[in-house]
Amino acid sequence: MIRAPLRTALALLLALTAAGCSSSTAPERPSRDGASAASVPTAPDAAPGRPSGPATAAPVRVTIPAIGVDSSLMRLGLNGDGTVEVPPAEQGMSAGWYTGAAVPGEPGAAVIIGHNDTKYGRAVFHDLRKLTKGAEISVINAAGVTARFTVTGKEVVQKTAFPTQRVYGRVDDRVLRLVTCDGPFDPQGHPVDNLIVYATAK
């Protein structure tokens, strides 16, 4: 039997390879309108990397000065069909926090998803690939508290080899992952890669 966190992570991987993103002129699905999408059979009791405990103020804004990002954060949960929500294409300049992962600044892996491009043009994480080690990311919560992270690395991975455990797996440290689409397009208009930025709380 697969335990719930692992089952969830595997389902996230399957959807990342299937849903993808597309060019700005292509339909939303497959689309570059969504940085990633994830599918789970049912909503898990606790997603990988998210410890149980008292409620913490939700994140409402993310800033990345090095690439000029200053974005509100919408909550991204699960759609009725079990896929993870992504920001609507018409709100491509806004990123979203996946509520099934950790709260930024709390122990565990927090995940923020943003578009690279949409059919409306460049989007919030268009320049994510320009981030370098040591860059600062700040996430402000609804109580006005700022969690500060330092970029430790980034990688471009094929969607067929998405590092599910590294991104969504349970960790004790306070870490953050930013995810978007990247790379060339396949014949169907799907970017074949994901760009992942890893950061650790200061």
Rank of each mutant, 00 (worst) to 15 (best):
L16Y: 07
A47S: 10
Q165C: 07
S36P: 15
A35G: 15
A109W: 01
D173F: 04
R61A: 05
P54F: 09
R174C: 12
T180H: 06
K119P: 00
P65R: 01
G80M: 04
V124I: 15
H190T: 06
G34E: 08
V139Q: 02
L128V: 08
I112D: 11
S71M: 08
L178V: 05
P65K: 03
F149M: 04
G53W: 14
G114P: 15
R148L: 10
V179C: 05
N79M: 05
V156Y: 04
Q165L: 15
A55P: 00
S94C: 05
A47C: 12
T42G: 00
T17H: 07
V157D: 10
L14F: 13
D127Q: 08
Y168F: 15
E106V: 10
T8M: 06
I2W: 01
D193H: 12
A161Y: 12
V156S: 15
G53V: 10
V175M: 05
E90C: 02
A43P: 14
L131Y: 14
S52C: 04
L16P: 03
A11V: 04
A135T: 13
V103C: 05
P184M: 07
A46L: 12
V69L: 07
V111S: 06
P191F: 01
Q165R: 09
C21E: 11
P54N: 11
R148T: 15
A143V: 08
T118P: 08
A123W: 10
D173V: 14
W97N: 03
A101L: 02
T8S: 13
N79I: 00
L10A: 11
D81M: 09
G108I: 06
D193G: 02
P54G: 03
Y198K: 03
L131A: 05
Y120G: 07
S71Y: 02
S71C: 10
D81Q: 07
T150V: 12
A101E: 09
D172H: 05
G53R: 09
L178Y: 02
T150R: 15
V62N: 03
G80Q: 11
R177Y: 03
V175E: 11
G77Y: 13
M74T: 12
T42M: 10
R129W: 05
E85Q: 15
N194L: 00
K202F: 00
V156H: 09
E85R: 14
D81C: 08
Y198M: 00
G105I: 04
T132D: 13
P41E: 04
T8R: 09
A11N: 15
G34W: 07
V124C: 06
L13D: 10
T164R: 06
I113K: 07
G96Q: 09
S52I: 10
P41K: 04
V60F: 06
S24G: 14
N79A: 04
D127H: 12
R32I: 08
V84H: 04
L6R: 09
T83C: 02
R166G: 01
M74C: 06
Y168K: 06
T25W: 11
W97G: 01
T180E: 03
A143K: 11
A26W: 15
A161C: 04
P51Q: 07
T180N: 08
E28Q: 08
A18I: 12
V86N: 11
